[in-house]
Amino acid sequence: MYIPFDELPPQARVWIYQASRPITEAERAEIKPLLQAFATDWSSHGNDLQASAELLHNRFLVLANNESATASSGCSIDKSVNFVRELEQRFNVSFLDRSQLAFLKDGDMELVSVGQLKDKVTAGDINKDTLYFDTLVTNYGDLQAEWPRPAQQSWLSRYF
């Protein structure tokens, strides 16, 4: 069962997929109904999920489920990953490559490869207060309140 993204409860579980490139407005217009259709049909062991999906910042695909209504399962998560793979093929974009990290600097998104991160921190290009789009955020409340968040408040804290 589809619910609008902005009506998700704070505890709703989210999965964030970062696109390898910005999603164009034309692609966004084509993807939005696909997201709603997927969320409408998404189920776990035959039970409809209270689900939603959204594109944020023309770069992030967010799938969500209200776990307090119906918990997702391994099978439902597999369905979502297959859906993301279908989007990748259809739009020639990667959502499953975790080798690029997205930061917000001076109002612009900057991608840094995982391999470059240590050098960027050492050079001072990225510091503990640099805003980071942490794709490991797991619930809607944190996504709304703390995203992007200072790098030090994420798994990147070990670099500072």
Rank of each mutant, 00 (worst) to 15 (best):
S113R: 07
V93N: 06
E110Q: 13
K118N: 10
I77Q: 11
F103G: 04
D106Y: 05
Q100F: 02
V84N: 02
G115K: 08
F95L: 00
E110H: 14
G107H: 01
S73H: 09
F95G: 00
R90M: 13
D106V: 05
N82P: 04
D97F: 09
V84G: 02
D108P: 03
S94N: 11
E86A: 09
S99H: 15
R98K: 08
M109A: 04
F83C: 02
R85T: 11
E110P: 01
V81F: 03
S76F: 06
F91Y: 15
V114F: 15
E86K: 10
F103R: 05
K79E: 12
V93E: 01
F95P: 02
S113V: 00
R98A: 08
D78L: 03
S99L: 10
Q89E: 13
S113A: 11
S94A: 14
F91M: 08
R90S: 06
Q116P: 00
L104I: 13
S99P: 06
Q100P: 01
Q89W: 05
Q116G: 05
S113E: 08
D119F: 01
L96C: 04
Q100E: 12
K79D: 09
Q100W: 03
R85H: 07
A102V: 15
V93D: 02
Q89V: 06
K105G: 04
S113D: 11
L111V: 07
V112K: 00
F83Q: 06
Q89M: 03
F103W: 14
L111H: 06
V114W: 15
A102C: 14
V114L: 12
A102D: 12
G107Q: 07
E88A: 06
F103K: 04
K118E: 12
L101P: 04
E86I: 08
D78M: 03
L111Q: 12
S73R: 12
L117D: 00
F83L: 03
K118M: 15
E86Q: 13
K79L: 13
G107V: 05
E110S: 09
D97H: 05
S73D: 01
S76E: 07
S113Y: 02
S73P: 05
F91Q: 04
S99V: 09
R85V: 03
S80M: 11
F91N: 05
L111G: 03
D97P: 05
V93S: 07
K118R: 13
S94P: 11
I77F: 09
S80V: 08
S76K: 04
V112G: 01
R90L: 13
R85M: 08
